[in-house]
Every structure is written in structure tokens, then in C-alpha cells.
Amino acid sequence: MTKSNLQKVLESGAFAVTGELGPPKSGQRDVIEQHASHLKGYVDSVNITDCQTAIVRTSSIATGRILLDMGIEPNIQMTVRDRNRIAIQADVLGAAALGIKNILCLQGDHATLGNEPKAKNVNDLDSMNLISALKKMRDEQEFIGGDKMDAPIDIYIGAVANPFADPFEYRPYRLAKKIAAGADFIQTQVIFDMERFERYMERVRELGLHKKVHIIAGITPLKSVGAARYMQNNVAGMLVPDHIIDRMRKAKDKKAEGVNIAVEMIEHLKTIEGVAGVHIMAVAWEEIVPEIVTRAGLYPRPKFD
């Protein structure tokens, strides 16, 4: 089996760095290339969102192939919102055929929150079922329904965790369930409330989960006070504490302060036992990623032959 770069980094014990790209609301390859170019060499893998917040965009798999052409490793996000198990498994095979190795399993924001609020929400599988399905396809060469695949596929299975959603006490158990279902690595929701994340990780360590899966902590550099408020109020399952909003408000150069906060958070995350890397979500601000990665002491990135 050929391993993805992300898998090699995580298994080497190096602190991983992943980036994120939101495909455009157009079919412009050059726009994708332009945004992705900022990330090249500074991250180990780039998440490609799958119509995030239920907004129609270029498909994640197609975008992933464009990144591969640029020499950037993609991590394809796949939600269960828009496709049933037939379409999902077909897309997994298609992604594998295109050379994509990392697949991140998500439920997906509800369609009523996006730009096609009248759409039918599919949810044939749930995110947990998707993890199990990928594991079954990879390890047993078998589809959900039991039919055998003709040949094995190489995929590295990711899942997400939101330490800031409720019920808080249950979240570490849900993480355990995702590991049991087959997740190889976890990317968390954006962290602003470090105190709550610390408490979450403490429980994760008590349950020994950090030894069973690679946990990559989510970070977003803030651009403005408005962005912080927007996330607090409008992004499902996101907590932005007042002290962060205050700090942004008092800052003269908002963007610089946003970057300072992100770098400080990464420095802090590096010290937390069980955090295997950082996922920097600077969607539509990809050009800031090299500065954050460099200032956080995470450049250059490990290379493998």
C-alpha cells in the first residue's frame, strides 16, 4: 500500500501541518491554482471542502486532482449530505483512481443553511457510517452492501471532531466511536476557546484515545472583529470567547493581531500531549499561511522519498 504524505508525516511523529482550500463558485481552474499555490511546500496536505456550509462550489474531488497536478497533496472532504451510498462509494473509487489518498469524512452542514435551501438532504449514511464504509472498502475490499470490489484501494481515513459542540461530556466518547469506526486521523473544529479544548484533551488522554489516532487541531487566523463575531454567531458549533474578540477590537492592525493569535495558539497546541499537528483554515487568505507556519517554527516541512 502506498501511503499519503500526511500519513507519513503523522507516523514519523513530526508535528503535522495541514491547510484548507475552499473551491470557487465557478469552474475556473486558474482560480483554484492561484489559491493553492500559496500553500505549496508549507503544509503536508490541503483539505478541499465539499460544498462547505452547503454552498454549491467546484467539487472537492475535481479540485483535488488539480492540486495533485500542482504537486500538492489533497485531503478530500466528503459529506453524506448530498450523496447516497451508491454515489459516495463510486466517488471514493473515482478519487482513488485519480490518485487521491486522504479522505475526510463529514456529515455536512444542513442544506437549509446554504444557497440551495430547498434541496433534499440525502443523509443516507451518517458520518460514522462513512468512516466504517471507507475502512471496509480499504481493509476488506467490500462495499457497504457486501459486494466485493475488484481490487483494493489506498486511502487514509480522516474524521472530524468538534470539542465545542454539545453535549460537551459526550464529545470524547464520540471521538472514541469514530476511532472504533476506523478513523486514522482527526481534524478538529476551529479552536478559539483553548481552556475548553484543554479540558477536552485531558479527557481524551484519560480514555487513551490520543494513542489510537492522530489528532490535528484546527486553527483559523482572524482578519477582523466582524469575522470573529460572525463565526461565533453563524458557524454551526463554533465558540469564540469574548477575550479573543476584545483582543481583536483593541488591536490597531487587526490582521496582524489575528496572525499573532494564531501563532500563539499553535505554540500552545504544540505543548499539549496528544495533539499531533495543526490544521490551518485560512480559506480565502491562503497567502498568510507561509507566515504563520514559519513563525510557528514549523517550516520547512518534512520530506519523504
Binding site: R81, Q107, G108, D109, H110, T112, L113, N121, N123, D126, S127, M128, N129, V160, A161, N162, F164, A165, D166, P167, Y170, R174, K177, A181, Q189, A236, G237
Partner: peptide, 20 residues
């Protein structure tokens, strides 16, 4: 559940309310 999940809750659950 807005997403008919069998293995919930999803990450959109906050303060006991649904993201929808």
C-alpha cells in the same frame, strides 16, 4: 434529528439546539 443520524450528535449541536 435534522440529518436523521444513527450515530449522533453532529458537530452542529450547541446548547441543546440544532444547527438548523
Amino acid at each position: 434529528c435534522s440529518k436523521s443520524m444513527l450515530n449522533g450528535p453532529c458537530g452542529g449541536s450547541q446548547n441543546g439546539k440544532c444547527e438548523v
